[in-house]
Amino acid sequence: MIFKSLDAETMLKNPEKISEMDRREFLKIGLVITGVFAGGSILSVASAADKIFPNGSIAEKYPYRPHYCMVIRVDRCIGCRRCVEGCAAANAVPSYGWRTLVLEKVVLQAVGQKREFIPVLCNQCNNPPCVRACPVTATYKDKKTGIVMMDNQKCIGCKICMAACPYEARYYNEERGAVDKCDFCFETSLSRGGKSTACQAACPADVRVFGDLSDPQSRVYRLVHQLQQPVWVLKKDTDAKPNIFYTKG
């Protein structure tokens, strides 16, 4: 049995007996130090409880204009998954694939709300492992927007980018004959003058906030650079410098 359910009561009674796996299970609940990023640069690694940014931690420059990013306010997500449907419809995502997903976390031991929904998608990393791994630059970082793009005509289908991605955000699309991934709806919206993504437009709870992180007037800038709520990213330890931020409120 690899996955054991967490016995928090026993753990707290016998703290000296907590095994390494138990400790990790405990951390999975969410009582975990969060790393705070902006534009792929680490702003701070601070306790979410303390809500402290160290001095001089706000990045002054972002490498792209516009520097597209998305802030996901997880506590607002109701799990309706209209974002997933909207994405699939806008980008012709087949039934066997996904560009975005809403994950469901159930914590029966939690006080009050016991369920949380976590939208995930390509993190448009500033240091994308997929781009480094691709042998023929079929996937690349757009120099203007920072979006990780696909050149379908070059894709050899080796799938090393799928293995390299820390967010499992890629799949092989038979119809396109290439690996497919979220491009912030660049092909279907942004390149045609659109200002939002399909997932953001479909969300009834304003969970996903999309915008330009290099613009101090944008919502995403203000959400990332505030001190009242913790901001974190997923898989911080891979040093991929993601541009999908998570917060609450």
Binding site: L27, K28, L103, E104, K105, V120, Y167, E168, L234
Partner: peptide, 13 residues
Amino acid sequence: PMYWELGVREYAR
């Protein structure tokens, strides 16, 4: 699973 740390149902095995 890449998202194992999140403890989500979709990646619990």
